[in-house]
Design a protein around this nucleic acid. Structure first.
Lengths: 194, 194
DNA sequence: TTTAGAAACATACTGGTTGTACGTAACAAT
DNA sequence: ATTGTTACGTACAACCAGTATGTTTCTAAA
């Protein structure tokens, strides 16, 4: 079969995409440690040479996966948020959290973002990604709520981090207990009302 | 030098201790992934043969380290708790949290318990250890607070998990922001009051 | 107190994995 | 066409986890 002529950028993007997709699949299913580069390359239909041409090492590939997964997650949440009509700032926080929990129902996504990423990536790098995506929305939400005098005046970033921690933990709860977690989270957030 | 005669149990305990201590040092400093068994054995002053005689694999050694670290953590917290005189159940939760945060100021401990353990160990095993130590205390505290009608009636275990998540996140905050985190946590818990 | 057996190690080896060096093919520019 | 550059493929070296096997130390019974 004759290889069709492609521009370098097309070639590059295609194999990068194949690699990231394959890696995401395997990282999600097996975890970072149990996933090896031969398997990733095979799943992507390329050789390890291609992998190490596009990514410095296995960790760099993982970081690319994490970045994309965060972007997809943010997309899912924002999509859900735009469907809602403007509620109060406290309700917005709770509903945003619900959207987050819904988007986190994929076990692979949990494995990558909540379990492996903190262990594999440098703290700084993960924080930076977080700041650009999920946490950013939360900080804005908390800020708005405080500005509207809807919740107590507390340090914004720490409070946002804590709410983030609540949702992260709830996301890892067994599905049948999710409702109880949501109930408690609602109570915790509502307790912040002025 | 003549090897003094030791009982098997003494030999066994001594090398197990040396291995766990050495492993704890290296896991704390380098993380699980970057720590290799030759380094652990060298640091412990034994060979890898001894390591694999006492532990099934690297992961089993790590789990032993986690178990001990959790025990030490619980010990530190309980010691601090007994120094306090009996406060109200809500104050008890907050002060218990402060003791936890104080005991978590060791970066190696954070690395092992909060970063690596969730990624390395099976969920079930880690949950089981948690249930025996830190979380157990929290569940009791939450239970007592609800029984005393000091906080709202919410599902105990989920709420305890969520509070645990709060403290875990706060423990990972930069030292200079710890005060802000504690302030927000206090507000969140106090907001649960009936 | 010798001796058989078991437990506690040490040594040697194997398979697998990561990262690199180097070679080749595809595209780009002149 | 050719020359350089980017995208890959192949071969290799280092390392590491785990195992198999040998050796030493302790235990206990004869």
């Amino acid at each position: 079969m004759q290889a069709q002529r492609r521009t370098q950028e097309e070639r590059r993007d295609a194999t990068r995409r194949a690699l990231i997709t394959a890696a995401r699949r395997l990282f999600a299913e097996l975890g970072y440690g149990a996933t090896n580069t031969p398997a990733i390359a095979a799943e992507a239909g390329v050789t390890r040479g291609a992998l190490y041409h596009h990514f410095a090492d296995k960790q760099a590939l993982f970081e690319a996966v994490v970045e994309e997964e965060h972007a997809l997650l943010a997309l899912a949440i924002n999509t859900a948020a735009e469907a809602e009509d403007e509620p109060g700032p406290v309700r917005a926080l709770i509903e945003g959290g619900d959207a987050y929990l819904a988007a986190m129902q994929d076990p692979g996504r949990r494995r990558i973002l909540l379990i492996d990423a903190p262990a594999v990536m440098e703290r700084r790098k993960l924080d930076e990604i977080n700041a650009r995506f999920g946490l950013k929305t939360l900080i804005e939400g908390v800020s708005a709520a405080i500005a509207a005098d809807a919740i107590r005046d507390l340090p914004v970033v720490p409070l946002a981090q804590l709410l983030d921690a609540l949702f992260d933990r709830a996301a890892q709860a067994p599905a049948e207990e999710l409702a109880d977690y949501r109930k408690s989270i609602k109570a915790l957030i509502r307790g912040l009302k002025t």
